[in-house]
Design a protein around this nucleic acid. Structure first.
Length: 439
RNA sequence: GCGGGUGUAGCUCAGUUGUUUAGAGCGUCUGCUUGCCAUGCAGAAGGCCAGGGGUUAGAGUCCCCUCACCCGCACCA
């Protein structure tokens, strides 16, 4: 088989581009870095925000059954005790390689697993808990211990009752949240794919138990449609039906959506049916009633939950991987980020053809301000020569370049150059804003 | 966390058996170019050689430690 089509981008190439062009820098770089942390530069902020907005627009604003929340990162430690995250923090744990039970090492007798009875199949002892521990308030004591949240989901579950009391939504309905989460990963890897501080976009979708299968399928389709909208090619997205043995014990079905990253096929997001596990747990731990009272007077019940859970950085890596292309133009390599217009950091770049001609510069500034005041994410670029500017804008995914040339001074038209086709057209200066609303 | 590798300019990399002022290409900046897809010309800036400690008369180069990144393995509740 000959190698047809574009060569897949390497992780190294992507990391290099991200740094060089101001998307993503290593965290604390001037001090030698801090493993598992990454900082977003001017373009990275824009791209990341565009991705998060696209998600919110698609799954929250675009639906009539969704509510947004933004919970605190610091939470009462009882949250993590109830959820099971806090167990094993103080004691070294071993895992039975056979049944995957996690046990305190000092509870093991005769090297035998008390759960399944297997002998001598334990992993090395270690701290399994990956939560960052901190103290709330000035006095350090056991009572003041809190954790940076290792997932955003609990912030939704703990507000479930608040949202129901405020809005009395009909079932099914969902609560969505975007926000940072923290995990003290043993080995952060693969650029921003696995880091210690990351951003999640999660939905807890509350349903009646009878409906979960139907609604799970709907979510599955909605997710695929969304990924497609972001420009991820269908042949790089894979659904992995997680077998029962690998699922969390409370989950009756989980699909991992995987993507072909530069470092290989790996998880992009998860869709899990979590039953009523979380709300029931909170009900037990807090003593508060988590039941939903049907408006038709039916029996109250604890809703079941379908959870689509996205990692922003992973989605961003998938978007960048999908967008990266290398064209051959006259024997020269042309790097283009073929981002969807709504995701591109800059909507359009404006240049004077030559920067030492005051008439061109003045006109270019005027057009720049005209576009900037309406769209915001517009770049002024007078660096080097026009060919280089086009190439640079290609590399950061700017869909259009507007060039003010000598003809502009004569007839008021500007050149609009298309990123993907490199074709140019002349557009009247007055209608230039209209031209870029079109996306 | 274990094993292997790497770390020199913004990026990609040279730098010999240890020796004066550390190099290239690209990029960046300045000026010129009626110029449209990495154009051409002239000039410039930019490096405590990842950090720390040793060996040596002398260290980018040899040794030790630390940090970060990459590749495997393990891990990813």
């Amino acid at each position: 088989m000959s190698q047809e089509g574009p060569k897949a981008v390497t992780l190294e190439t992507l990391v290099s581009l991200c740094k060089r062009r101001g998307f993503i820098y290593q965290g604390s770089e001037v001090y030698g870095g801090l493993a598992g942390t990454w900082d977003y530069g001017p373009l990275g902020v824009l791209l990341k925000r565009n991705i998060m907005n696209a998600w919110w627009h698609n799954f929250v604003d675009g639906r009539n059954d969704m509510y947004g929340v933004d919970a605190a990162i610091l939470m009462n430690k009882k949250v993590w005790e109830a959820s099971g995250h806090a167990s094993g923090f103080n004691d070294p744990m071993v895992e039975c390689q056979h049944c995957h039970a996690r046990l305190r090492q000092d509870h093991i007798k005769d090297d035998k697993c008390p759960v399944c009875g297997t002998v001598g199949q334990f992993s090395e002892p270690r701290q399994f808990n990956m939560m960052f521990k901190t103290n709330v308030g000035p006095v350090e004591s056991d009572d003041s211990i809190s954790y940076l949240r290792p997932e955003t989901a609990q912030g939704i579950f703990t507000n479930y009752k608040n949202v129901v009391d405020s809005f009395y939504p009909d079932l099914p309905f969902g609560i969505a949240q975007q926000g940072k989460a923290f995990r003290n990963e043993i080995s952060p890897r693969d650029f921003v794919f696995r880091s210690r501080e990351f951003e999640q976009m999660e939905i807890e979708y509350f349903v009646h138990e009878n409906e979960w299968e139907k609604l799970f399928e709907q979510w599955r389709n909605d997710i695929q449609a969304f990924l497609n909208k972001l420009g991820l090619p269908a042949d790089k997205v894979h659904e992995l039906e997680v077998p029962e043995d690998d699922r969390a014990h409370y989950s009756k079905r989980t699909i991992d959506f995987e993507f072909d990253y530069p470092h290989g096929r790996d998880e992009l997001l998860g869709l899990a049916y979590r039953t009523d596990f979380d709300l029931t747990n909170i009900q037990k731990a807090s003593g508060k009633n988590m039941e939903y009272k049907p408006k038709d007077g039916g029996e109250p019940f604890v809703p079941h939950v379908i959870e689509p859970s996205f990692g922003v950085e992973r989605l961003m890596m998938a978007v960048l991987t999908s967008a990266y292309t290398e064209d051959e133009v006259g024997g020269e390599k042309r790097v283009v980020l073929k981002l969807k217009s709504e995701l591109a950091p800059y909507r359009v770049a404006v240049s004077p053809l030559l920067k030492n001609k005051p008439e061109l510069v003045a006109k270019a500034q005027e057009v720049y301000k005209q576009l900037k005041s309406e769209f915001g994410n517009v770049m002024y670029d007078d660096n080097g020569n026009i060919g280089k500017r086009y190439r640079r804008q290609d590399e950061i995914g700017t869909p259009y370049c507007v060039t003010i040339d000598f003809q502009t001074l004569e007839d008021g038209t500007v050149t609009v150059r298309d990123r993907d086709t490199t074709e140019q057209e002349r557009v009247k200066t007055e209608s230039i804003n209209e031209r870029f609303k079109a996306y």
